[in-house]
Computed example of a mutant assay.
Amino acid sequence: MTTTSWVLLGLTFAFALTDWWATWVGRVSVRYVAKPATLVFLIGVAVTLDPVDSKIRTAMVIGLLLSLAGDVFLMLDEKWFVAGLVSFLLGHIAYIVGLQLAPTSLGWSLVGLAVVVACVAVVGRSVVQTVRKTQPEMVGPVIAYLVVISAMVVSAFGTADPWAIAGASLFYASDATLAWNRFVDQRRFGPLAVMVTYHLGQIGLVAWLV
């Protein structure tokens, strides 16, 4: 980590905390600034740190940029939800590319596969079943997204790196909470849980680059 990276990381946490507070109290106007700003500064961290592999960093930065686009789309009207979904789906593909460029452990990949199979069985299946009943036109996009993010998590486990595994797992938890809260059962703490795990997950993936 460079000095600039540390400063930008501090700003990332400052805006993330602001967004968490705004999410909990319902300050939408504050979120319009804090939510994208968190990713902007985190992208700055990724760009300015000293990575183990510059090619991996490039793929991960592309994923972060697509995540930023997804964040913006999801703050807009409902009609932009699919655009946000597609942005994050493409972002996860970029993450998969970056994670697959690193040395891979078969054993840890199998552990990751077991984790995602369990999560799909417990949460994913219920989400897809509910979507099929209430919004059948969304079944295809939801399943496609579920497959891609699951592949990203397996790829992260395959690196055998604690930062990558923690980051991807938190991202998985964030999207699972978002899907459950949106399609199955809304909970008061849901939006906050989504953002806390999302931001920490993204930070973990960036930390893996060092």
Rank of each mutant, 00 (worst) to 15 (best):
I43H: 11
A59H: 01
R125W: 15
A59S: 13
W24D: 10
L89Y: 13
T23L: 05
S109F: 03
L89K: 00
V139R: 03
L200P: 00
L74I: 15
G112W: 05
L11V: 15
A160N: 12
F189H: 04
A59P: 07
L209I: 03
L209C: 06
A164C: 12
I62E: 00
V127E: 09
F183S: 01
T38M: 13
V153P: 05
L39H: 11
I165L: 05
Y32R: 11
W6V: 09
H199Q: 14
W20Y: 12
A193F: 10
V194S: 03
G201A: 01
I203R: 09
A16R: 07
E137N: 06
V117M: 14
W6N: 04
R57V: 15
F73E: 11
L89N: 03
L99I: 14
V40Y: 05
K35R: 12
N181Q: 04
L146S: 09
K55G: 00
W6M: 01
G201L: 07
L209A: 09
S174F: 00
E137R: 11
A37C: 13
A114F: 14
A166Y: 13
Y95Q: 12
I93Q: 10
T104P: 10
L49C: 01
A168M: 00
S174G: 05
S126M: 06
N181C: 02
A118C: 12
Q100R: 14
Y172N: 14
M60A: 04
A34P: 07
I143T: 02
Y145N: 10
D77L: 10
T58L: 10
V139G: 02
K79H: 03
A168V: 05
L192S: 06
A207H: 06
S174I: 04
P136G: 13
L76K: 15
L17E: 03
P191G: 03
L39I: 15
K55R: 14
M138G: 03
A118H: 06
S126D: 11
S169C: 02
L90G: 01
V82L: 09
V184D: 13
A156P: 14
A16L: 06
M75Y: 07
Y95T: 04
K79A: 09
A173D: 03
V82R: 11
I93C: 10
T197H: 01
L42M: 06
V52T: 15
E137C: 02
W180C: 09
I43V: 15
D175P: 07
V82A: 01
S109P: 09
T48N: 09
M195Y: 01
V33F: 15
S109Y: 05
A16W: 09
F73C: 10
I43M: 06
I149T: 12
T48D: 06
F88K: 07
G98V: 11
A176Q: 02
G91K: 08
P162G: 04
A207L: 15
L65Y: 03
R188S: 13
L205D: 07
F81T: 02
L101I: 08
D161H: 07
N181T: 04
M195P: 08
A83R: 07
P162M: 12
H92R: 06
V122M: 08
A37G: 08
K55E: 02
G91E: 09
L17T: 07
V61L: 07
A166T: 15
L9W: 14
K35N: 06
F157K: 06
L205V: 03
L89E: 04
V139M: 13
V122C: 00
P136M: 02
I165Q: 11
K55M: 14
Y198W: 10
T177P: 12
S169V: 02
S5Y: 08
R188W: 08
